[in-house]
Computed example of a mutant assay.
Amino acid sequence: TNMLERGSQEVVLNDISASTGVLLVDYLYSGNIDITQLNAQDLLAASEMLLLGALKKKSEDFLLSHTDSVNCISIINLARLYDLKILLADARNYSKTPLTRI
């Protein structure tokens, strides 16, 4: 294409940290990625920005398995931001669950 980056030796990806960038390059070459609670949100943002639908789905699946009554409001906001309907419905269910006292 006629994009500016065509002749560049280096491409700058704004808003993607170096650690997330390394994970993305490994993922693009291998198809494997280690999603953790520390990187899930960054990977979701990067997958949205770079139009990586399969990675976006993997990130959503990870968040589905890590949603609880403590983080459900944050997950609701994240799901709304990235239009993740299944995650949004799941997190809303947690927000309706009565909290138990410790």
Rank of each mutant, 00 (worst) to 15 (best):
39 N>S: 14
46 A>K: 00
27 Y>T: 02
34 D>C: 12
34 D>F: 07
24 L>H: 07
46 A>N: 04
43 L>Q: 00
19 S>A: 13
18 A>V: 15
33 I>F: 08
39 N>A: 10
35 I>C: 07
23 L>F: 01
35 I>E: 05
20 T>S: 09
18 A>W: 11
25 V>Y: 07
35 I>Y: 02
30 S>Q: 10
31 G>C: 01
27 Y>Q: 02
30 S>N: 11
35 I>K: 03
19 S>F: 15
30 S>A: 08
24 L>T: 03
23 L>V: 03
39 N>P: 00
16 I>H: 01
47 S>Y: 09
41 Q>W: 10
46 A>W: 08
26 D>Q: 09
43 L>G: 00
40 A>Q: 08
47 S>L: 03
39 N>V: 02
20 T>M: 05
33 I>L: 11
43 L>R: 02
47 S>H: 01
38 L>I: 14
20 T>K: 04
44 L>S: 04
28 L>T: 08
20 T>C: 12
18 A>T: 14
41 Q>I: 13
37 Q>I: 13
35 I>S: 03
15 D>H: 15
22 V>P: 02
18 A>N: 14
35 I>R: 00
16 I>D: 01
32 N>M: 09
31 G>R: 02
19 S>P: 12
30 S>M: 10
22 V>G: 04
33 I>W: 05
19 S>T: 15
18 A>F: 07
26 D>V: 09
39 N>Y: 08
38 L>N: 15
15 D>F: 12
26 D>F: 10
41 Q>P: 11
30 S>D: 06
37 Q>D: 13
15 D>S: 13
17 S>E: 10
23 L>Y: 05
27 Y>S: 01
36 T>P: 07
22 V>K: 09
36 T>R: 14
37 Q>H: 08
15 D>T: 07
20 T>N: 05
16 I>Q: 10
22 V>W: 13
19 S>W: 12
45 A>M: 12
39 N>C: 10
24 L>Q: 07
31 G>D: 02
44 L>Y: 01
41 Q>C: 07
41 Q>R: 12
23 L>N: 10
21 G>K: 05
30 S>C: 09
27 Y>D: 01
16 I>G: 06
29 Y>P: 04
31 G>T: 00
45 A>P: 02
41 Q>T: 09
45 A>G: 14
25 V>S: 13
27 Y>K: 01
29 Y>W: 07
28 L>E: 09
43 L>I: 10
27 Y>R: 04
19 S>C: 15
